[in-house]
Structure formats: C-alpha cells, structure tokens
Design a protein around this nucleic acid. Sequence first.
DNA 1: GCCCTGTCTCGACGTCCGTCGAATCAGACA
DNA 2: TGTCTGATTCGACGGACGTCGAGACAGGGC
Lengths: 127, 127
Amino acid sequence: MSKQQTSPPVVDLNGDVPCCPPLTQRRVPAETAAVLAPAFKALGDPVRLQLMSMIASAEDGEVCVCDLTPAFDLTGPTISHHLKTLREAGLVDAERRGTWVYYRARPQILRQLAALLSIEPTPAYRP
Amino acid sequence: MSKQQTSPPVVDLNGDVPCCPPLTQRRVPAETAAVLAPAFKALGDPVRLQLMSMIASAEDGEVCVCDLTPAFDLTGPTISHHLKTLREAGLVDAERRGTWVYYRARPQILRQLAALLSIEPTPAYRP
DNA sequence: GCCCTGTCTCGACGTCCGTCGAATCAGACA
DNA sequence: TGTCTGATTCGACGGACGTCGAGACAGGGC
C-alpha cells in the first residue's frame, strides 16, 4: 500500500488548473479537457459510479474495502482495479490502517466537475 | 440523417428514471448507475468534452458540424463518430437544415449530472 | 439530369478496458 | 518465525474504443 500513498494521483485538480467556468458558458480549452476528461471517464462505468457513491455517501466519510467488495458480483481483484482507477483519477484517497484499507472521497474534485456541468454560474466559480 | 432523427437516444433521462439525489447523499442504485454511467463515459474523452462545450456554449444555442470539424486535428468521420456518441448518450440533439447539420445541447441531462455530483442538495433535487 | 459539397456509414487497424485466476505483498497474531 | 487474512499486482483473454480511408447518402445549383 505504500506505493499508492507516496505516488500522487495522476490527475490532481487541487493544483493550478484554472477550474472551471461552466461548460455551457465558455468553450473548454484542450488542456482543461485533457485534465478533466479522465475524471468523467472514471465515472463512466456503472461499477465505479456505485463505488464512488458508496464511498462519498459513507457515514464516517470513509469505507473499508471489505465492505465494498461483497456489494458486487465481482472478484476482489476486479474491485481493486476499479478502486485504483478512481484513485488515479483523483476522485478518492486510500489509507491502510492495520489489516484494512479505507477509501474516502475528495469532495473538491466532485465540486469542480459539478460546477463544470452546471448550467448557471455556481458558487464554485465566480469570475 | 433520417435515422438519427427518428431513433431516440439510447439513454433518455427525461423519462421515468428517478434522477437523482446527490451521489454523496445516497448510494446510487445499480439501475441508476447503469443509466447514468454512459453519459459520464461520453464526456470521458477530451475531444467529446470539447465538442460538448462548444455545442452547449454556442451563441445561438446550436452549432453547425462545419464549424465543429475544423476546430480539431481529426478527420470528418472521426468527429462524426464522436457526435454520434454524444447523441446516443442523450447529451445532444441533431437536426439537418438544408446542406448543414446543427447540434444543440440538452440542458436537462446536464442539470441531472451536475445534481448527481453536487455535494449539497441543489435546487435541481429536493426530496 | 449531373456534379459538387457536407455529413454519415462501413470496414479495418491498433490500442485500451473489464474481468478473471494465480501470485504477491502487508499486517496481525500465535 | 510461521501462518492466516485482506488487498493489490501480474498476466491473459475477449470485447469495446478511437482513428482512419473509402464509399454512400442528402441537398443545392447548374
């Protein structure tokens, strides 16, 4: 687990990306699209969308993988693969505590994606 | 072009799908995920994200394909393929008028996707 | 009718993705 | 130390995806 803690997510939207006026207001530049598209892509699979929802709506703000896996008709390695995709998209963070690994959502990127899709300007973006 | 006008989009979110409390509030059911994921998937490509933005932010609410194609370093068939993907995801509508084909966004589904990603309950969803 | 322009469809190619079983790694506990 | 459990990585398979060139289709103008 050390590797996934030391290496930052491939997509990091907390950085200097000028994110984002709504998609309906200004044409998204190619560079921004290249950064944001992988996040949408990660949500573009039904299993990952459910995983993301289970993690983001968790009571304690985090979920053990051991609670995620039995919720699907898929093997452990497959769930682990999907979680890795969400991690690399910058949507979730993972932390090992003892025997178990816990995942939690990164609200900031969710807010940015929501702001991008919003029709009207949102509090998340004021020019 | 008659075919793309008569056949409804594969994903139709204006229908009876109970859409949607924020992803962070309630776990997304499998059926909802199966309907919504293709829309995110369609936005999960940089070219399509830019196309969607160009269409949704158009002055007149619509864009001619002839204005879309030269904005990218891709062939006509490839752009056409991406537009078909957006159409089948229910994100845009197409209409031929004379020689040219015009695309316009479907704001409703954008609103639904934004509501799903929002952290707090939004005006788009009141339980 | 014929041709020209704009757009889409078709078939092909290489690559990426979702899934699995087997193997590996990380901690906990005797 | 050894062993057990939980989670990840690895390697492989079939299918889907992004891209292209060639061809087909729709409308407009001659």
